[in-house]
Amino acid sequence: MAEELFNEDERDVLGETINIAMGKAGAALAQAFEGFVNLQVPEISSVSAADLLATRQRLEKTYERISVLEQEFFGELAGRIAVVYGPASYAALRNVLGFDDRDGDGRRQREELLLELGNALASTCINEVSALLEMRTGLRPPRVMAFDIPTSTADWHLFADLEMSGQMLLIDIVFHLEAHDVPFELMITIQPGCVPALKQVLAKRI
């Protein structure tokens, strides 16, 4: 386990900030699915390269196959956010939205759908965190990093900064669509260079 980047009070304020952002993103997801989303307490942890193996193993256990959308954010608050879809989440999406992609250019249609929903979730979440913490940030366009591939083969840019810094902040948010029993997951990493500024902002709110 990596040494904690934040103390208990800092983690508490950050957790509550993420909780509010998660609530906004959850409401957007609920609206898209015309359903109810069970929200769980977000997990905030400091991770090192050694912890990554456990994270990957956990993802492989949860999702046999995976689609991942990643989006980079930059500015005073910088990092990466990934929206993780398992096969069931895509199937639920298709059922709710009632389209048939079995014929024609189904893959393109599916990618666009994942991009659209993922972008909405990621931008809602990051923009809310940025507004609450009063740290300016911008979002680069989202990219589909993996599309319906075995989870073990997925390439994660999300953790790219870890190789240089040795340790980074990981925030994990899981949304559970009640009617479909389907998890959607948001994973956020914060660039190590932003940590001092983030600690200063959190200190004012303790």
Binding site: G23, K24, G26, A27, A30, F36
Partner: peptide, 12 residues
């Protein structure tokens, strides 16, 4: 007092 602002959460 909650961040869970879904319409259905409020109804529930």
């Amino acid at each position: 007092v909650s961040a869970d602002i879904q319409t259905k959460a409020k109804e529930r």
